[in-house]
């Protein structure tokens, strides 16, 4: 069992957050006893690798609720585009976001462009808290060297993606989104494609990304492109702080 005090979430959510990752060798009874004894957290999330039913049962029995399944995949080749897809791609480009564009991205996030993460979907969190997480995360990743890229479609700033170079030319595609005014144009596939194209253009051997089972669009896209599924886990969570104290 790994435990992480997610101190950054104090800034994002205004809460003391504990992140727990269970492993196959963890004993259900020990895990549930340990979790039940935690007092210094307002919110706890627990990741459990799929199929470990005794562990899942143990945390369900102490009040943890299922939130999502996270799938992590490696994209090993840039998908080949043809026909209509190729026509879209000819009108798209990406460039590093300026500080002003980063603020535009934050404004769109605060206006509610992301709706499928477990914080946006959890009525115990406000939309401001959910948006703060994204803005804080992007800021932290950019400060650590990740690239925040703007996507241009026919001269319009339609969305963004965030990627990070890792060891051995293994890149990470961290986040991507289309701004609401452009979400009806069939661009969803390309927001992901552009991120992978950017990484492979920089010499990536593979690009790792993680998506939620609550995000049907991302699931669908990654089902049709050439990916290798590397891990899946269930995410459970529990609120320890009273509801009325929650919203910041």
């Amino acid at each position: 069992m790994k435990t992480i005090k997610a101190v950054w979430e104090k800034r994002n959510l205004g809460l003391d957050v504990l992140e727990v990752e269970l492993e196959a060798e963890d004993q259900p009874q020990e895990v549930s006893q340990w979790l039940a004894a935690v007092e210094d957290a307002d919110y706890i999330s627990v990741k459990v690798p799929v199929a470990l039913m005794p562990l899942i049962t143990a945390i369900e029995e102490i009040g943890y609720r299922f939130r999502e399944m996270l799938s992590t995949v490696d994209v090993v080749n840039l998908p080949v585009l043809d026909g209509v897809m190729a026509r879209y791609e000819r009108h798209m480009s990406s460039a590093r976001a300026t500080p002003e564009q980063m603020q535009e991205i934050f404004a769109c996030i605060r206006a509610g462009m992301f709706k499928t993460d477990r914080f946006s979907l959890d009525p115990m969190f406000s939309s401001d808290q959910a948006a703060n997480r994204y803005c804080g995360w992007i800021s932290d990743e950019v400060a650590r060297g990740a690239e925040l890229m703007c996507i241009d479609f026919k001269g319009k700033f339609v969305g963004f993606f965030l990627t990070r170079a890792g060891d051995n030319k293994r890149f990470h595609s961290l986040l991507a989104g289309i701004f609401p005014p452009f979400q009806h144009m069939g661009l969803g596939y390309f927001i992901n494609y552009m991120a992978y194209a950017h990484c492979f253009a920089q010499g990536a051997k593979s690009v790792t990304t993680t998506f939620s089972s609550n995000n049907l669009g991302a699931c669908s896209i990654h089902n049709i492109i050439n990916t290798r599924l590397t891990s899946q886990c269930y995410v459970f969570s529990k609120h320890l702080k009273r509801v009325e104290e929650f919203h910041v």
Binding site: V84, G186, G188, Y189
Partner: peptide, 13 residues
């Protein structure tokens, strides 16, 4: 969604 849109457009063409 975006993939369904591509499929529909290709099919109509």
């Amino acid at each position: 969604d975006s993939l369904g849109h591509m499929q529909l457009m290709s099919d109509l063409e």
